[in-house]
Design a protein around this nucleic acid. Structure first.
Lengths: 210, 210
DNA sequence: TTTGATATCCCCCTATTATGGTATTGATAG
DNA sequence: CTATCAATACCATAATAGGGGGATATCAAA
C-alpha cells in the first residue's frame, strides 16, 4: 500500500516538530516536507506531490490563504487542512473560499489531527466545532425582512425587474397593462428610496429582497 | 444539574425507538417527546421546551425543512440536528438556511449522536463528513473568470453600473466622457449578449462578474 | 509593418424609463 | 359606513438608455 504523503507549513517550530512526530508514529504516513514559511510553496508542492497539506494561516511572508490560492492554481487534488489559533479572524472564509478542505484550531490539533487526515482523505471536511458553527451561521438566512414594506405584488415586479425584464415584458408576463407596471415601479422606487432601475436592481439583489 | 431536554421527530419507528433507548442510557438526558410526524410541531416544541431537537428530513405531512422554519419563527435557542438518509438531495442547504445547527446521516447516528448532541450544545455544528464537504464546496469559489472576455476597464464600468450608477455618474467618477462610457457599455452588452441595463446588472451580480 | 485589442470621443435617432399627476375598484380595518 | 390601502389604469413631459454609425491614439503581437 502506498503511503500517504503529508506536507506541513507551520511557522511555530515546536508545533511543527510536534506534528511531525505525531504523524510519523503512523507508518502509513510519510512527511514529504515541513516548512516554517510558504515562500517556496509552489516548488515544494510540485516536488513533494502531497496528498494532504497542513497549512498554518499566520505565517511570515506569504500567509496561508495566499499559499492556498497559489496551490489551487495548479493542484486541485491535494487536500488542504488549515491550522489557526483563533476562530474569529475572518481568515476562515477567505481560506475556505480559496480552496481549503478543512479547518482546525491549533488547540484541537493533537486530539483531532489523525482523525482529520483520515476524514479529509475520505472526502470529508474536518472542522473544529466552533469553525463549523461559523460556517453554518454564514448560511443561516435571516428572513424577517420586508424592511421596506413592499407588497407581494411589488416584490413580484421587483423580482421580474431584477431578472432583467423590461416594463413591457413584465406587463405581458403578469397580464397587466404597461401603465400599471409603471405605477408599481414608482411605488417600489419610493419605498426603496431609489430613482432608477439600476439602483433598484442593485439593492434588490444585494439585500436579497427578492 | 438540570437535565438536557431532547425532542425527536422521526417517522421510522424502529430508528426513533432506537434513538430513545440510546439517549435514555444517559441520565443527563430527558426525552421530552418523540413523534413520527411534525404536524403538531409548534405545540409540541412550546410545551416540551427542548434544548435539542432531532429532526428527520423526510416525513409524511410537514417535512423537516418546513418544520425547522416553523420552529425558528418563535424559538431561536433550541439546537436542531437534522437526520437524513442521503447527502445529496438538496434538502441539505434548505435545512441549514432555515436554521438547522447540525446535520447527520442516519448511518452515522448510532456512532455520533451522543457526541453530536454534546457538540451542538457547546456551540458547535456537528455534521457527517460528507455533509461538511458539501457545505465547504459550496463556499469554494470557482474562478475561471472572464468567461466573457471583459477588459479591466469594462469590468470597472460594469461594476459601477451594477452599483446603480447612471452613465453620467460613471463618466464623472472615472473622469471620462459620457460618450466613452456609452461606448464601453455597448461593448459590454455585446460581450454579455444582453440588450439592457437590467439584464447586464442581473448577469453581473448573479454570475459574480464584478 | 500591419493587424488586433483597448480606450477614448462624437453624432443622430429611437426606445425606454423617470416623474408628476389623476382615477377607479375591491378589500379591510376602524 | 367610511377612510385607507393595494392593485389597476391612463396622460404628459423630461431624462436616460439603446443601436447605428465613424474617428483617433496607443500598445503589443504577428
Amino acid at each position: 500500500m502506498t503511503p500517504i504523503r503529508i506536507l506541513i507549513f507551520e511557522d511555530n517550530d515546536s508545533l511543527r516538530e510536534g506534528l511531525c512526530q505525531l504523524l510519523m508514529l503512523r507508518e502509513e504516513y510519510t512527511i514529504v516536507g515541513d516548512y516554517g514559511d510558504a515562500r517556496q510553496v509552489k516548488e515544494v508542492v510540485i516536488k513533494g506531490r502531497p496528498d494532504v497539506i497542513l497549512m498554518d494561516i499566520d505565517m511570515p511572508g506569504t500567509n496561508g490563504v495566499e499559499a492556498v490560492k497559489q496551490i489551487r492554481e495548479y493542484d486541485q487534488n491535494a487536500q488542504i487542512i488549515m491550522l489557526t489559533v483563533f476562530d474569529d479572524n475572518g481568515h476562515v472564509f477567505d481560506a475556505l473560499k480559496a480552496g481549503a478542505n478543512g479547518y482546525l484550531l491549533k488547540r484541537n490539533v493533537s486530539d483531532m489531527m489523525v482523525q482529520a487526515i483520515e476524514e479529509v482523505l475520505e472526502g470529508g471536511a474536518p472542522m473544529s466545532p466552533s469553525i463549523a458553527r461559523l460556517v453554518i451561521n454564514q448560511l443561516h438566512e435571516q428572513r424577517p425582512i420586508n424592511l421596506y414594506m413592499l407588497s407581494d405584488r411589488e416584490k413580484e415586479i421587483l423580482g421580474s425587474l431584477a431578472k432583467g425584464n423590461s416594463f413591457k415584458l413584465i406587463a405581458a408576463d403578469l397580464g397587466i397593462s404597461f401603465e400599471t407596471v409603471r405605477t408599481h415601479i414608482k411605488r417600489i422606487y419610493d419605498k426603496l428610496h431609489v430613482h432608477s432601475q439600476g439602483e433598484a436592481i442593485s439593492k434588490a439583489l444585494n439585500e436579497k429582497l427578492v
